[in-house]
């Protein structure tokens, strides 16, 4: 497991160098949203049906909704925290391919089709701590753009400059390795052995043997 420090925008070689389980800290400009309607609007923009508020080519795209408010000093982010990326599985492959995203970040991972799109364009999925609102929020240094202000604040498309965001964990690399799928299949493979261990423990408990100190 290696540790990396990435400054966005990032070139594809740096992304392809990342391996599953590596830790990554991020500096620079990221784009964030937590809304399904926002993803649908991005797809509409790809189809020429609406304008993007700012370009997404090669972006770090974060499933990181915020509580934000419009103040006299501008758009203020009070706190951010990730949302579950798998909710956007059906839309993400198109978005990843069209804009050549370099990073998608959120919690919970993405599916096999997304991992294929990421491999094609050179993009990784970074897992960010759920329940890390203070740490993530304190990494924001500046809000550099806000799009689609007609949406509720956590659905808007927000561009921000971050420093030392993370550590984030590489959950899907740019070589088609999906850590989430691997975890699930490994857990399934382990099930028969675990059921056998449970059977032995049940029999011992039924015989009044209590717990097994060696287990």
């Amino acid at each position: 497991m290696a540790t990396h420090h990435l400054t966005l925008p990032v070139d594809v070689e740096a992304i392809r160098a990342l391996r599953l389980g590596d830790l990554v800290t991020v500096d620079g400009e990221i784009v964030a949203t937590g809304g399904l309607p926002t993803h649908k609007r991005i797809i509409e923009a790809m189809e020429g049906k609406r304008e993007l508020p700012f370009p997404l080519e090669g972006a770090g795209f974060f499933h990181l909704p915020s509580y934000s408010r419009d103040t006299d000093q501008g758009f203020e982010i009070v706190y951010i925290n990730p949302t579950t990326s798998t909710r956007f599985n059906p839309l993400m492959p198109k978005i990843i391919r069209h804009y050549g995203l370099r990073i998608v970040c959120g919690k919970g991972g993405l599916d096999a089709e997304c991992a294929r799109a990421m491999q094609e364009v050179g993009c990784v999925y970074l897992s960010i701590l759920g329940g890390g609102a203070t740490l993530h929020t304190d990494a924001i240094k500046e809000v550099t753009g806000v799009g689609w202000s007609d949406l509720v604040t956590h659905y808007r498309l927000v561009k921000m400059r971050v420093e030392d965001l993370g550590p984030l964990t590489v959950g899907i690399d740019a070589h088609g390795n999906n850590g989430y799928d691997q975890l699930e299949s490994r857990a399934r493979e382990r099930l028969p052995a675990l059921m056998e261990e449970l059977r032995v423990a049940r029999e011992r408990a039924a015989a009044g043997g209590g717990s097994d100190p060696a287990a």
Binding site: K107, T169, L183, R186
Partner: peptide
């Protein structure tokens, strides 16, 4: 022993 770990790491 399933191996998911904290946040699936």
């Amino acid at each position: 022993k399933l191996g998911f770990g904290p946040m699936g790491t």
